[in-house]
């Protein structure tokens, strides 16, 4: 039983990072209707940018902010220069997936060419371990949970209390109608991609902080759980992605604790496939969004 409680604790820590990434992925899909598989390699990029900064003596949390900003900018440029023009020309959705997967491969192997295939580490995390309600978490993990929670709160406030947030929600819901209402959808898209790209970068650096060591496959390893979380919550719904992240994180860790740890990732895979086959709109996807997901 103690094992399961500890696993739940780990699950919350992992789930927080997965939620962070899943929200960014979900926002990108909501705004542009693209399943951006390059997301994984962008997280890897952030992790390595963070590594570079840390090796030059920058504090890990500042490195997280800078890494997030770098990937935010890269995401905006990527969307503007490659993805948006292809969509405008009427490229089919399947071709867009192939493009984003290919871009992810290119980015991943460019990183390998520069940084090498060996594992790297951010180094020993100093700080105490905390014991809360039976969970045993390191200070770093708690910090990540707090960070994720504040970023989610910030996003919530942005989406609900600001005009920009309203514009983002409108563009997400019906782009043409939003444009008819005078919303500059291109600019809103750029901002949305910067925000979601920053979340992607933050998730990448956070992953590198919480794992003992990582290599160039970091992003692609965690991308699937993030997509699973996003789909579970209802793709395009940031709040769903947050809850989805927690569910995926906790269930993976608990499953690993009670059975073979090698199968930890399989839980996320199964969640994703079952959701796609049984209920593609996710737990919180509205019925109208099913139109987007079915043949079209």
């Amino acid at each position: 039983m103690q094992l399961i409680i500890e696993a739940i604790g780990f699950g919350i820590a992992t789930g927080a990072v997965i939620a962070l990434g899943a929200v960014g992925f979900s926002v990108q899909f909501g705004i542009s209707n693209i399943l951006n598989i390059t997301y994984g390699s962008l997280m890897t990029l952030a992790a390595y940018v963070g590594l570079l900064l840390i090796e030059h003596g920058v504090n890990a949390w500042l490195a997280l902010v800078l890494g997030a900003a770098v990937v935010g900018v890269v995401s905006v440029v990527y969307h503007r220069a490659l993805l948006a023009p292809l969509v405008r020309r009427g490229t089919r959705a399947i071709a867009m997936v192939i493009v984003t997967v290919s871009a992810g491969i290119i980015l991943q192997y460019v990183i390998v060419s520069f940084a090498g295939p060996e594992s790297h580490s951010y180094g020993e995390q100093s700080g105490s371990t905390l014991h809360l309600i039976g969970f045993t978490l390191s200070a770093g993990q708690v910090a990540i949970i707090v960070l994720t929670a504040s970023l989610m709160l910030g996003l919530h406030l942005l989406l609900t209390r600001t005009t920009l947030g309203k514009a983002m929600r409108a563009t997400s819901s019906n782009r043409t109608l939003a444009r008819s209402c005078g919303i500059s959808t291109d600019r809103v898209s750029d901002i949305a991609w910067f925000i979601s790209g920053s979340l992607c970068g933050a998730a990448g650096v956070a992953l590198a902080i919480t794992t003992v060591s990582f290599d160039f496959s970091l992003g692609s390893l965690f991308l699937i759980p993030m997509i699973a979380a996003a789909v579970l919550g209802g793709i395009g719904q940031p709040y769903g992605a947050m809850l989805g992240g927690l569910i995926v994180g906790v269930s993976s860790e608990v499953a690993a604790a009670v059975s073979n740890p090698n199968y930890k990732d399989v839980v996320a895979f199964m969640i994703l496939i079952i959701m796609l086959l049984v209920r593609p709109r996710g737990l919180f996807g509205a019925a109208w969004s099913t139109r987007r997901l079915m043949e079209g």
Binding site: L35, I37, R92, A93, I94, M96, V97, I98, V101, I224, I227, N262, Y263, D265, V266, F269, M270, L272, I273, L276, L277, P280, R292, L293, M294, E295, G296
Partner: peptide, 19 residues
């Protein structure tokens, strides 16, 4: 499903079988 959803599902199937 939409073709791109199916594509991602297939990628996941591939990854899952390998795992």
């Amino acid at each position: 499903l939409r073709q791109d959803y199916q594509a991602v599902a297939m990628l996941v199937v591939s990854l899952m079988v390998a795992t």
